[in-house]
Design a protein around this nucleic acid. Structure first.
Length: 267
DNA sequence: AATGGGACCTGCGCGC
DNA sequence: TGCGCGCAGGTCCCAT
């Protein structure tokens, strides 16, 4: 599922592929993914526009256009952007460029969201985003954790607390830091919180280097899977031996989400 | 304030 | 072989 490294990968690839290109046609195969405005207005607002700038805010992708509007993309869990595309049957929306190439937006489960906004900065979700891990240091992180009694793992996934981390990287970072996902956030020592922040940053950076983790549906812009999944130490490894101590990896539900951890290495 | 559950969706893998 | 069911998780929303 696309988290910060996957969205960053797609953002970089989009920059190389479609920056400066003109959209000449938009075909909508399932209008449910278009959250704003209507499908008709969406098409009208995009046709003829040139992609001027591409940004990422946490897990959100923003394509700024020359007509002062922005295409805001949230892939949620199964959204994909594929280029060059083929407007195949899995496509929900296809963007046709003046050079004849196609950018396909696919989404198996229809959770993903496309919006055409005058001002993406006004989107409530974006306004409420907490800092990305790269934007804070250990002292600030410790202070943030100290104000929260909630379990550390769901807290890492709270985009208003810290943004860009989802279920997979939260589990991997907590394993790397040797911290039990059920620990109250304010129980982490200064040293533990510093190690955790470093693990988060290191793992996100390494995942970006390997162009993301392909579990479930995520693919790079080219349609190829990302290469980071083979480095996962706990995610989706329930019952398999811990790569450090051989204890079977456990899976529990926290905040309704599958949580993988090593009961021996993580305390 | 924190927590839990359901909702949104579809396809996959499982057990029978 | 085929069917029904649970599950997957990013985010919002509601209830407690």
């Amino acid at each position: 599922m696309p988290e910060l490294p996957e969205v960053e990968t797609v953002k970089r690839e989009l920059e190389a592929a479609v920056l400066g290109k003109k959209i000449v046609e938009v075909r909508v195969f399932d209008s449910r993914v278009i959250r704003f405005p209507s499908a008709a207005e969406f098409k009208k607002g995009l046709t003829g526009a040139v992609i001027k700038n591409i940004l990422r805010k946490a897990k959100v992708l923003i394509l700024e256009l020359t007509n002062s509007k922005s295409l805001v993309v949230h892939l949620k869990m199964t959204g994909q952007l594929v280029y060059p595309g083929a407007a195949g049957k899995a496509s929900r929306v296809s963007f046709y460029f003046s050079d004849g190439k196609i950018l396909d937006f696919n989404d198996q489960r229809l959770f993903a969201e496309l919006r055409l906004m005058e001002r993406w900065q006004d989107l409530e979700f974006i306004r409420n985003l907490g800092p990305e891990p790269f934007e804070i240091g250990p002292e600030q992180f410790r202070e943030m954790l100290g104000k929260k009694k909630t379990k550390i793992k769901p807290l890492l996934m709270d985009q208003a607390f810290i943004s860009g981390v989802g279920n997979l990287y939260a589990a991997e970072a907590l394993f790397g830091a040797g911290i039990d996902p059920r620990r109250p956030a304010d129980s982490l020592t200064a040293k533990e919180s510093a190690v955790l922040l470093k693990e988060i940053k290191d793992i996100l950076n390494k995942a970006i280097e390997h162009k993301g983790s392909s579990v479930d549906q995520y693919v790079q812009l080219s349609g190829e899977p990302g290469g980071y999944a083979k480095y996962h130490k706990v995610y989706d490894r329930v019952g398999k031996p811990c790569l450090v101590c051989k204890t079977p990896i456990q899976r529990i539900a926290l905040g309704g989400r599958g949580t993988y951890f090593c009961p021996k290495c993580q305390r």
